[in-house]
Amino acid sequence: MKIFSDSFSSIEKGLNYSALKQKTIANNIANADTPNYKSKDVSFKKVFDETLANELAAYRTDSRHFSFRSNESDPAVVTSRDLSFNQNGNSVDIDKEMSNLATNQIYYNALTDRMSGKFNSLTNVIKGGR
């Protein structure tokens, strides 16, 4: 019998992604005036593909069929090298970064609320519904 579902690990991965994105955005904002600094972003596609590969299970009738499992890997921080918004070669758009910061905060709050709800449900089960 499986007591904990995979949702805890999925929420944990989402929180790790959000924390890395927060650090990356903060680093971009801190370097907004640094000459030749190129803004960075966290690759969501890599995290999404990893999560999908770990969540999906497939029945393989032949060993030559593709496996749905992938190797564990961390989210990738990608540097944007083709953009330059300022005359000093800096590619940080402060308005975009502040918007990304607010979006990431909402995402993080949603994940923490979901995790809190999971723990409250677990506490309710342990107490016998009282």
Rank of each mutant, 00 (worst) to 15 (best):
26 A>S: 11
54 N>Y: 01
51 T>H: 02
26 A>F: 03
44 F>L: 10
36 N>I: 03
13 K>F: 02
41 D>R: 05
59 Y>E: 15
55 E>C: 08
61 T>K: 12
37 Y>N: 02
73 S>I: 04
14 G>W: 00
37 Y>R: 02
32 A>Y: 03
43 S>L: 08
66 F>L: 13
30 A>I: 03
58 A>H: 11
24 T>R: 01
71 N>D: 14
34 T>D: 04
22 Q>R: 05
41 D>T: 11
58 A>L: 13
73 S>M: 10
52 L>A: 09
31 N>A: 07
36 N>H: 10
34 T>Q: 02
32 A>P: 09
35 P>H: 02
37 Y>V: 07
73 S>Y: 09
41 D>W: 00
33 D>S: 08
48 F>G: 06
20 L>F: 03
68 F>S: 15
36 N>A: 11
21 K>I: 00
59 Y>T: 12
17 Y>L: 03
20 L>C: 05
72 E>L: 11
66 F>P: 12
41 D>E: 09
50 E>N: 13
69 R>S: 15
43 S>G: 12
55 E>Y: 08
39 S>K: 11
35 P>Y: 01
40 K>W: 02
63 S>D: 15
74 D>R: 05
61 T>L: 14
15 L>T: 00
44 F>M: 12
33 D>W: 07
55 E>G: 15
60 R>C: 13
74 D>Q: 14
57 A>E: 12
62 D>C: 09
51 T>I: 10
47 V>F: 06
48 F>I: 10
74 D>F: 05
58 A>M: 12
73 S>V: 09
26 A>W: 02
56 L>T: 08
23 K>H: 05
72 E>I: 10
22 Q>Y: 04
54 N>C: 01
51 T>M: 09
34 T>C: 11
